[in-house]
């Protein structure tokens, strides 16, 4: 069985690359997520309620979609989501903790983001995708996990799998499909995956 990486993107602290090509962002002191939101000319008010983890994953998914419009032709339950990171929802966890310490009240708006899989929900809601979705926590980018589980899902019930490693300043997303629709000539393999991942991550 041969599957293909048909798009990929890296979101770093102040730059973003799609299929290895740097995106021309306007000079700005804004957070990279705000810059990308503007770059994508989005009008999606829910975005501003999200925590940073969800925002980053959400924008990565939008960038990949922009580059792979055929993704929208799959049936609504044929696109799977496999996402992972090393620290779960630690940033929001800390903010939620702060909300009720020192005399404050626990914030329900923060609490709902104290689960890392919420970002899967945000991407599913945006695209009306009802496919399989799994969030895992691992110390490092685990190419072997993505490789084997992607192949499994494509073999079982999915036509495409969007994968993401969502870490502050070194986010990496890639789309895997059964055909090499964008002709990037990147067969899904351990070597290829590690090579592309490391392209922009120091």
């Amino acid at each position: 069985m041969t599957n293909y990486i048909t798009s990929y993107c890296h979101i770093l602290s102040d730059e973003c690359w799609v299929n290895g090509k740097k995106i021309a962002l306007q000079d700005s002191d804004d957070d990279i997520t705000k810059q990308l939101y503007n770059y994508l000319e989005m009008d999606y008010p829910k975005f501003f309620k999200m925590d940073r983890l969800s925002k980053t994953a959400f924008l990565g998914a939008e960038l990949i979609k922009n580059n792979n419009l055929a993704l929208l032709n799959y049936k609504d339950d044929e696109v799977g989501l496999l996402f992972s990171n090393p620290i779960s929802s630690a940033e929001t966890d800390l903010n939620f903790l702060k909300s009720y310490q020192n005399g404050g009240m626990p914030s329900p708006a923060l609490f709902v983001y104290t689960l890392p899989n919420i970002l899967l929900g945000e991407i599913a809601i945006r695209n009306k995708w009802y496919g399989e979705s799994v969030f895992t926590v691992s110390e490092n980018f685990d190419a072997a996990y993505f490789l084997s589980y992607c192949n499994m899902l494509l073999n079982k019930c999915q036509e495409a799998v969007l994968c993401g490693w969502i870490k502050n300043n070194e986010t990496f997303l890639f789309l895997v499909e059964k055909e090499d629709v964008n002709q990037l000539n990147l067969q899904l393999s351990l070597e290829q995956l590690n090579k592309i991942y490391l392209k922009k991550i120091k």
Binding site: P86, I87, S88, A90, D93, L94, L97, L115, P116, N117, I118, L120, S133, V134, F135, T136, V137, S138, E139, D142, Y145
Partner: peptide
């Protein structure tokens, strides 16, 4: 362990049970 609650238990399990592969942590609500 607020900053990384899941990685330390994984390391402990590998050591205590002499695991050949790093455990997979599923965190999906």
């Amino acid at each position: 362990n607020l900053s990384s609650p899941m990685i330390q238990p994984v390391h402990q399990l590998i050591k205590e049970f002499k695991l050949k592969h790093t455990p997979i942590v599923i965190s999906n609500a």
